[in-house]
Amino acid sequence: MVPLAVGFYPILAAARAIAGAEQNRSLDVILSQPVPRWHLPVATFAAFTIGLLEMVLLFALITWASAVAFGVDLDLGDMLAGSLNLLPLSLIYGALALIVSAVVRQPSLVTGIAGGALVLGYLTDAVGKIAADVDWMADITPFRFYGSAIENGLDAADVGVLLAGAVLFCVISIPVFARKDIRA
């Protein structure tokens, strides 16, 4: 469930920063300044990446400290790898929320669509892993590239695919947002 909880953070951040700002009209003030439109999705992507990094590092340290306090043998390096592994997967869905934000203007709709994709991906992956006759389902979502880093360490190739996907989504959101009518 942790990927679900963490994955919602960048979705909410993207919904608030773009669709939310359009809906509450603070986007009018921002775009009245000499700021190129591409700054908005890119800055939002940067902001939720930093926020996620802080979140997963804090999560790793608290979990590790709690484990140590209760005498559980947990390697800090493994714990950090497991937590950092949440980052690329969450970024994919955050960047998807950027694209949706560049199209619709209701933050709840952004959260619904991108959050729905996250939940659907999680469930599809879980079903595929449990039921052998539909095991292909585990291969069709971004969760395919979310291994068990806490046991096996970070897989550079998987992380690379997810990060590339997140960057691609962010890049796609730029022209989509640039063409958007910012309505009153």
């Binding site: 775009l31 009518d181 009153a184």
Partner: peptide, 9 residues
């Protein structure tokens, strides 16, 4: 005004 500000295409 929104067209003048480039908010609307």
């Amino acid at each position: 005004i929104r067209a003048l500000m480039g908010f609307l295409r």
